[in-house]
């Protein structure tokens, strides 16, 4: 009886211990999955030729869209401008700004040539925010620490900011937007998105 009890409790204990890391490992796992998918696309020889460039972009965009929270990024970048926008204006901005960020991201990963990605650690707080730290090792042996800031929505963790060596993407945009009138900002954003 007591042996049986011991066995059951041991079993429960180990299954719990085994289960915990995978539960805690959520945001990092999701970032890893997204990154792996992007690396698979950019290093796919079938998609390498220039005539496949559009197809390749579309595929990356799809993956990135699933992991990035464009609305949260827009809200945090616009800060004080955000509250004065109507719902339609917000939608318009999210769409355009998302496109700009996406393009910047695409241009960066487009140059991918076998860089290694190390997954360091993650932190989650109970209010649904998290942090995933990774390190990119370039071909030139330089190490670039990158930090993804993620927000929970349902089962998924969505990226709302990326910091590279302490430089936050969203902070940088916010500081630029802060002193600009919204009209000028929007005009410039439209011009940026349409220019290739």
């Amino acid at each position: 009886m007591s042996i049986h009890f011991l066995r059951v409790s041991l079993f429960l204990f180990f299954t719990l211990v085994m289960a915990l890391p995978s539960f805690a490992g959520q945001p990092m796992e999701q970032i890893r999955e997204t990154t792996d998918r992007i690396i698979a696309i950019v290093s796919d020889p079938v998609l390498k030729p220039p005539e496949k460039a559009e197809e390749r972009k579309r595929l990356i965009r799809q993956v990135v869209d699933e992991r990035f929270d464009w609305e949260e990024m827009s809200r945090r970048s616009l800060a004080r401008h955000w509250k004065q926008r109507t719902d339609d204006e917000k939608k318009e901005f999210i769409n355009l700004f998302g496109k700009l960020l996406e393009r910047t991201y695409l241009e960066q990963v487009g140059n991918y040539s076998g860089e290694k990605v190390l997954y360091l650690n993650e932190t989650i707080d109970e209010s649904g925010f998290g942090d995933v730290r990774i390190k990119i090792i370039t071909k030139q042996e330089t190490e670039i620490p990158v930090r993804y800031k993620v927000k929970k929505n349902g089962d998924g963790w969505y990226v709302y900011d990326i910091s590279v060596e302490g430089r936050s993407l969203i902070n940088n945009y916010r500081k630029q937007f802060q002193r600009m009138p919204y009209k000028k900002l929007l005009k410039q954003l439209k011009a940026k998105v349409t220019q290739e």
Partner: peptide, 9 residues
């Protein structure tokens, strides 16, 4: 400021 803003926003 919660930890997610710790980076300095």
């Amino acid at each position: 400021p919660s930890t997610h803003d710790e980076s300095g926003e």
